[in-house]
């Protein structure tokens, strides 16, 4: 009888502590995520030091649960895969240290994984088929990039943000309007009752290349919110908040959709993969679906559980494992 090989993936690059067990096929046997949203909520954004502290507290319970839920013993594992780049170094080092110890003591290979490659690979995991080559849009609190994805582990940057990531702009806007953290879901909830055409917020760099810029949009929202409060008062500003949230969401979705379609046009590719936490946004998903349908492009967006940070996407390392490209025992945690 052939035994299917099993792998443990670990993710601690930002504010989610995650572990997953997957097979070489790949099949996801378990995927456990401990969110730190409550820890960071008072600050309106991720505090690196607090993220690192929370990873230490969450690490072992998350690994144990991932093993239990997949009915896996450590002895069943063929390798340990860990996201070692890019991310918050103080956070990454927790997962990397644990992965190195497990690999050394179990005497099994260690696989160093790019978090960004993992995000792109999540699209293939969800699709259950080969999606490469494609254009990949990675959009989260830490990243906003358009990539030419020759393969999950061969990404070529087509465009990236010159300042804030889209998710970061949403977090800051949500904090400004008192909507809480994380900003993306908070803005989306508020926007449901809003009119997206009420405020014409700027679409930075919309007609210019494949790079992004969201700081100007954030500033425009700041001034609009400030003027509303000053001219109409706090209550009126609060009443206008759903419209403002919807207008912001629409501006972000317009920019992301336009740039993604431009990248597809320039590369001639017919598949768009969208990943990262902001890809959970319903307006963005609908807008991308409509644009891709019109252009005859296949759209691959994973379900929300595979869009946000998770360890199942460490399965991108399976090709490294097949090729024997193992990480050194003193693997580095890299911020970029």
């Amino acid at each position: 009888m052939t035994t299917v090989r099993r792998f443990l993936g670990l993710e601690t690059s930002c504010d989610e502590t995650a572990a997953a067990v997957f097979t070489e096929e790949p099949r996801i046997l378990s995927s456990v995520v401990a969110s730190q949203h409550q820890v960071h909520a008072p600050f309106g954004g991720v505090v690196p030091e607090l993220a690192a502290r929370a990873h230490i507290r969450n690490l072992l319970p998350v690994i144990r649960r991932a093993l239990e839920e997949s009915n896996t013993k450590l002895e069943d594992l063929s390798a340990i895969a860990v996201h070692n780049r890019p991310g918050l170094v103080g956070a990454l080092v927790v997962g990397v240290s644990a992965a190195k110890m497990l690999s050394s003591m179990l005497k099994i290979p260690l696989l160093g994984v790019s978090h960004l490659e993992g995000h792109v690979y999540a699209c293939q995991l969800a699709a259950g088929k080969n999606i490469f080559p494609c254009v990949a849009l990675i959009v989260s609190g830490g990243h906003t990039q358009l990539m030419l994805a020759h393969a999950a582990n061969r990404l070529e940057v087509l465009g990236r943000t010159k300042d804030d990531a889209a998710g970061e702009a949403l977090d800051k806007a949500a904090a400004l309007m008192g909507l809480g953290f994380p900003g993306g879901p908070a803005i989306e909830r508020e926007a449901k009752a809003g009119n997206a055409k009420k405020y014409m917020l700027p679409r930075p760099l919309l007609h210019d290349g494949l790079d992004f810029s969201f700081s100007g949009l954030k500033t425009a929202l700041l001034y609009t919110w400030r003027d509303l409060k000053r001219d109409a008062g706090d209550v009126a500003a609060l009443n206008a908040r759903p419209d403002l949230a919807a207008s912001l969401e629409a501006a972000v979705a317009d920019v992301l959709t336009t740039k993604a379609m431009r990248a597809l046009h320039q590369t001639g590719l017919k598949t768009l993969a969208v990943c990262g936490g902001v890809a959970c946004n319903t307006r963005l998903r609908l807008q991308l679906q409509a644009a891709c349908h019109k252009a005859g492009v296949e759209l691959q967006i994973p379900p929300p559980s595979l869009c946000t940070d998770n360890a199942a996407m460490a399965a991108v390392s399976l090709e490294q494992w097949r090729n024997g490209e193992f990480a050194p025992a003193d693997l580095d945690a890299l911020p970029y």
Binding site: L60, I63, R64, M101
Partner: peptide
Amino acid sequence: GYTGLRVGLASALAFTLVR
């Protein structure tokens, strides 16, 4: 030192898992 402590404890926790 924070980093040293995190490396030490994360490694020790992983060690306890093994056997």
